[in-house]
């Protein structure tokens, strides 16, 4: 169930640097925080005048793995959660990120880079809540 994944510091740093590059470019070009939950939430809330760039960002996000698959072969991931868990998780992630104004990208990458106390608090809480949830599901009730 909880399969080991290898520690990959080099590809992690390279991938992370690309995420940072994306955040810097979106700020330099459009003046926007690269927060996925904020960008996506703005697509499904009440009418907003700036849907197009949000849609374009999400399209790029989805196109990236397609390009990798065409260029380098399959991208494989492992999903351990069952359907009911996925529904609960999706609802919590969706509502929680809108309630708390951000996720791993907005509060994590961008907010911490701006030295925002709100983002620091958010990251501390969602990391702790995530680790606690994994501890319960993998070690207490597994």
């Amino acid at each position: 169930m909880d399969a080991v994944t290898p520690f990959t510091p080099v590809s992690a740093l390279i991938g992370g640097a690309l995420i940072g590059l994306s955040a810097v470019w979106l700020m330099a070009a459009n003046g926007r925080i690269a927060g996925i939950s904020g960008i996506t939430g703005g697509l499904i809330g009440p009418a907003v005048p700036d849907r197009l760039w949000r849609l374009a960002f999400v399209a790029g996000l989805i196109a990236a793995p397609l390009i990798v698959m065409l260029a380098a072969g399959p991208v494989e991931i492992s999903i351990q959660a069952g359907p009911l868990t996925l529904i609960a998780a999706g609802l919590l992630v969706g509502a929680g990120t809108q309630m708390g104004s951000g996720c791993t990208s907005g509060h994590g990458v961008c907010g911490l880079s701006l030295f925002s106390p709100r983002s620091l608090a958010s990251v501390a809480v969602f990391m702790a809540a995530g680790a606690a949830t994994v501890f319960v599901t993998r070690h207490l009730i597994a």
């Binding site: 999903i79 959660a81 868990t85 996925l86 609960a88 998780a89 999706g90 609802l91 919590l92 992630v93 969706g94 509502a95 929680g96 990120t97 309630m99 708390g100 996720c103 791993t104 809480v125 969602f126 990391m127 702790a128 809540a129 995530g130 680790a131 606690a132 949830t133 994994v134 599901t137």
Partner: peptide, 9 residues
């Protein structure tokens, strides 16, 4: 809430 959902899936 977000962290709990993140840890579930």
């Amino acid at each position: 809430l977000f962290g709990a959902g993140w840890g579930l899936a």
